[in-house]
Structure formats: structure tokens, C-alpha cells
Amino acid sequence: MNSKIKSVVRSVHSGIGDLFPSMKTDAIRRINRHPGLSNALRSAAGIEPIENPPEDEAPIGFVKAVRQDAERLTKGVVVREARKLVNQPWVRNSVLPVLDHTPRFRAWLKRSVFEPPKFDGQETCVGAVRDLSRQGLIVYGVLSSLEQRGDD
């Protein structure tokens, strides 16, 4: 039973967090103002408890958080779709010349879509299950099952 609660709390926590990070941060900061409630949830999720509300963590504000997440989501969708689109030859041939007339939008699109990689950045591991290799998925399966068993 306990493990089911943990897995529900974790999935809600990470699922919502991925989609609405500002709202998640806002909610956590609000909850952290009440250490009793915060620690009960932390205990359910298997996270270390806190002693006092963190001093430098004021809530973002619900409206501001919603606006930030909406902007992030919209930008994400636009960038993702634009990346797909610009790889279509007909787009390159017909739409891109039109963008020459809107230099600022074109510059923003170029920055967002064609941003070259930062080559000297630190190496990181893959962050999403779908980006794991076949071997990675096998290892992931074992680690996940162990984590689940550990909860039991």
C-alpha cells in the first residue's frame, strides 16, 4: 500500500513537474511553508524531510506561474514544429524567403531552431527513457524493477 502511494505521488510529482515546472515550484514552495504537510508528503514520496520552511523560497504566485508555464509550453510547441517544418524542402523553398521580410521573427526562429550546440559544455547522460539505447533500456528495466522491489 505504502509503495503504491509513493509511486502515485512520484508520478504526479514528475509528470506535472515536466509539463508545468513553474506551477510545480509554486505549489512546492507553498506546501513548504507548512512543514507538517510538506514532511507528510515527503515521507510518502520517500524524500528527506525539512526542518523549517526554506527562507529564500517565496512562492512564485499562481497567475505568474501559469503564465510562465503557458509561455514555455507554447514556445516548446512552436520550436518543435518549426524544427520539423524547416526540414521539409517545400518549406525551405517557399516559406523561408517570406521570412526575409520579417527579419526579427526570422532571427528569433533561427536562434531557437538552429541554435548550434555548445561543444565545450559538460557531458550529460540521456534524460528520457525514450532516448535510451536498446542496451540502456535493458539496464533501465532492471534498475526500475529493483527500485520497485526496494519499495516493497
Binding site: C125, V126, G127, L132, L137, I138, V139, L143, S144, E147
Partner: peptide, 13 residues
């Protein structure tokens, strides 16, 4: 590895 199964799996693979 709690909370890091994807990254750990990637690193091991």
C-alpha cells in the same frame, strides 16, 4: 540510484 534510473542506465550501457 533512486531518482536516477534513466541516467544510470544510460551511463552503464
Amino acid at each position: 540510484t533512486r531518482g536516477l534510473p534513466v541516467q544510470t542506465a544510460d551511463a552503464i550501457a
